[in-house]
């Protein structure tokens, strides 16, 4: 966690994404036109959210197995940042949808899935808020986190593929080829995913450190 090189990597990749995402060459697609650049910002939000949710899940499992307070802090903060990424993805998506599909909130299984995901993680925080005892809070919310994640997954990965969706790569296999990206775009897209995930982990790790230091201070008073 305290190694510094990946923070430079994250900032470098993010700068690269922003600069080349805005001035790089993109293929001219009907309807999409220049808005295809949003692929560098909208799609990585989902990758970031999924990565953070999976980290949160891992720490919840770890907490239940070993019962160390810091694992609970990790799980909470990863979930927190996952919600922020989810909201950002939602906003970038509705901006994009407004200009390409003509509607900021069309009927689409993936949008519904994300709304449900945000509801689930909000419920997670409501649950945490309703307990005083730290241990009880940590244990019950870890149980809910695992349970909610497992019932959220079918909504994200299975249901959209059974129904029609406006998003590319549905109703069949989730191929990225359907984004109609050329090699120029891929050169920006893959680093963008990595950059946003790293930024998410960075934010989460800062919050975790603050919280752990706070806990430490309170214990020593």
């Amino acid at each position: 966690m305290r190694k510094i090189w990946w923070k430079f990597l994250a900032s470098g990749l993010l700068l690269y994404t922003v600069i080349f995402g805005l001035i790089g060459d993109v293929p001219r697609q009907p309807i999409l036109n220049e808005t295809i650049r949003n692929v560098y910002f909208h799609v990585p939000m989902w990758f970031g959210m999924m990565a953070l949710m999976i980290s949160s899940l891992t720490y919840s499992i770890k907490y239940l197995r070993q019962g160390q307070t810091q694992d609970d802090v990790y799980a909470v903060e990863f979930a927190n940042v996952a919600i922020v990424f989810g909201v950002l993805g939602f906003i970038t998506g509705s901006l994009w949808g407004n200009y390409t599909w003509g509607d900021p909130l069309p009927k689409d299984p993936k949008i519904i899935a994300v709304e449900v995901g945000l509801l689930i993680y909000s419920a997670y925080f409501v649950l945490r808020g309703s307990f005083e005892d730290e241990q009880k809070k940590a244990r019950l919310s870890a149980v809910y986190n695992i349970f909610a994640f497992a019932s959220f997954m079918p909504l994200v990965w299975i249901l959209p593929r059974l129904t029609d969706s406006l998003h590319p790569g549905n109703g069949g296999n989730p191929a990225f080829g359907k984004y109609d990206m050329d090699s120029n775009m891929r050169m920006v897209f893959y680093p963008a995913i990595l950059a946003w995930i790293l930024v998410g982990v960075w934010i989460a790790s800062l919050r975790i450190r603050i919280k752990l230091l706070n806990n430490h201070l309170q214990e020593n008073i």
């Binding site: 449900v116 409501v126 649950l127 309703s130 349970f147 959220f152």
Partner: peptide, 20 residues
């Protein structure tokens, strides 16, 4: 385990039941 069982029940279960 909480004091507000009924309210918490709805909040926690609805998003989980939505896929099914």
């Amino acid at each position: 385990k909480s004091d507000n069982t009924a309210g918490l029940m709805a909040v926690l279960s609805f998003p989980i039941l939505l896929p099914i």
